[in-house]
Nucleic acid binder design. Sequence first.
DNA 1: AAGCGTTATTCCCTTCGGTATATTACGCTA
DNA 2: TAGCGTAATATACCGAAGGGAATAACGCTT
Lengths: 124, 124
Amino acid sequence: MHEDKSTHQKKTGGMPTVRGRIWIDGPEGTFFGHGRAVLLERIIEHGSITKAAKSMDMAYRHAWDLVDSMNRQSKEPFVEVATGGKGGGGARVTKAGERAIKMFWRFHKDLQAFLTREQKKFKL
Amino acid sequence: MHEDKSTHQKKTGGMPTVRGRIWIDGPEGTFFGHGRAVLLERIIEHGSITKAAKSMDMAYRHAWDLVDSMNRQSKEPFVEVATGGKGGGGARVTKAGERAIKMFWRFHKDLQAFLTREQKKFKL
DNA sequence: AAGCGTTATTCCCTTCGGTATATTACGCTA
DNA sequence: TAGCGTAATATACCGAAGGGAATAACGCTT
């Protein structure tokens, strides 16, 4: 689901390319962005922070920090977590989290369209 | 000249804010962006890389790297440099460099407009 | 009560971007 | 030729960010 939303690409090879990124700032700084959207999708897919982190080759520590940051900054949490219990626990993305994902991809898509429009204006 | 073109702000305090940045990629990666535009303006203002770097509290090394990167990636250099000579030398921004500055600020302005449009769509 | 797998937390290590410092090269001026 | 202020380059250092590993906490299951 969602193959190439990458915003960071090292080289372009040919002509100079207009590029950009978009994100949402909250009370503590970064609140939502590309990496966090992907992380939430992986949590939905795997049902746990541990597996989500592994699946995207991210340290659990980092993933947990991101989840914690989102939950702290949002009125309603994006991820609900269960420690202990059946299977040791798990993590679940809330409705609010799903809305955030959808909204961000919409923003992201708008940005891509904007960038291709700007690219046409490129003239050194 | 050009007071608040900063794209990086740590906190927003109030509501979540849609933010973003834009830059130009070239053969070696980043080719032009906010910091480089400001640097060129300072070089114009001061006539040397040393003074330009000092004026924006940037290490000379870093400033030189940026200038070198731009000159390597552009067909025609953005900065012409004189080592030794009257006053020890100096640096001068070329016409191509000035065009790049102008174009970037135009992109930057477009982006700001885009971001405020997106902000209006923000709904968690 | 023991076992299980996950969340939660701590500590240390490495990596890396940028800084600071020092030295050399340069070419006009006097 | 000596002096000057800059460009150019090399080296060492610092701090922040991220990673890895280890451990504790948790609560269902058996």
